[in-house]
């Protein structure tokens, strides 16, 4: 198949929005229908009425070719009526990778998304401690390649000034930055960011769009930490399906600043989707969180 360009992917997103998928009226893509119990078809658990884009996922094996991994993940995504997935970071996971390793892992993701018939969107993985190499990799994968966003993990806390050039370039490329955030009472990794760190970086770079992955982990404090920084969106993946997370996020941030992700394949699609479909919020808010907000973010 031909190379998928970023422009084509973003055009697809825009067309999806224009076609009304934000309202959930577009036909679902061809899916392998699940053999599910009657309960899974009850209104409380009906996924098929939503358009779903998953903002957070990973490859999972050093031994299986990325295209095979993607095919396996998409078969499971089909069962959950997930139309598109965002994937980033290759394998194995490295807390503080050298630039060559970052490039190797991004190549794995490029292979995976190019095999996905447009259903997988890539975010380029960067280690901001290597700022110039990060800018070069950003150009390679986003400006000149098919990736549509940036993933930052745990090499350095993101309030560090070395991230500012990356944030500036991200704004120029209309590429959102998804930053892992977690506040742990058991202790963070040395370079592990908290939601407060994203808020600080975002306040210095108001033209850049940020996603606080995992809503800070300890979401009751994480949501508060980003509340006053409008260019930060909370992404709800990666933690237990604890009741109330999405209700609080919508109450404090507004539905337009909340997006769904799962953190597949470590987490289940089911447990993370449940946070949205099982939340006591309006249907229109669920549609924004499940796809509309991410589509809007990527179509800018």
């Amino acid at each position: 198949m031909g190379k998928i360009t970023r422009r084509a992917l973003l055009s697809g997103a825009a067309q999806a929005a224009a076609a009304g998928t934000l309202l959930g009226h577009a036909p679902a893509r061809a899916t392998a229908r699940a053999v599910a119990p009657a309960a899974a078809g009850t209104p409380a658990c009906d996924l098929d009425r939503y358009v779903i884009w998953d903002a957070h996922g990973h490859l999972y094996s050093a031994d299986t070719p990325p295209a095979e991994q993607m095919a396996s993940l998409l078969r499971a995504a089909d069962r959950m009526h997930i139309e598109r997935v965002v994937v980033f970071m290759g394998y194995p996971w490295v807390y503080d990778p050298e630039p060559d390793e970052v490039r190797r892992q991004n190549d794995q993701v490029l292979e995976a998304i190019e095999s996905s018939d447009g259903r997988a969107l890539g975010f380029v993985y960067l280690n901001p401690k290597h700022t110039q190499e990060s800018l070069d990799e950003l150009d390679r994968c986003v400006r000149d390649g098919p990736m549509v966003g940036i993933k930052l993990w745990v090499s350095i806390r993101c309030h560090d000034p070395c991230l500012d050039p990356i944030a500036v370039r991200a704004a120029e490329l209309n590429a959102p930055i998804l930053q892992h955030t977690w506040s742990k009472i058991t202790g963070n990794l040395p370079g592990e960011s908290m939601a407060e760190d994203v808020a600080a970086l975002a306040a210095r770079n108001p033209a850049t769009t940020f996603i606080a992955a995992h809503a800070g982990g300890d979401w009751e404090t994480g949501i508060r930490a980003i509340r006053g920084t409008p260019n930060v969106t909370a992404e709800i993946c990666g933690g237990d399906p604890t009741a109330g997370i999405v209700e609080m996020a919508v109450r404090e941030l507004g539905a337009q600043r909340v997006i769904y992700g799962s953190d597949f394949r470590g987490r289940s699609f089911a447990s993370q989707l449940a946070k949205v479909v099982g939340a006591d919020i309006p249907e229109e808010s669920k549609r924004l969180i499940l796809a509309g907000n991410l589509q809007r973010m990527l179509a800018r």
Binding site: A39, A44, C45, L47, A76, T242, A270, S271, A274
Partner: peptide, 19 residues
């Protein structure tokens, strides 16, 4: 439930291909 969202367990039944 109610600490976890009940739909999480229900949707896991759908996520796996089970007879």
């Amino acid at each position: 439930s109610p600490f976890f969202i009940l739909e999480s367990a229900v949707l896991k039944l759908r996520e796996s291909e089970l007879s």
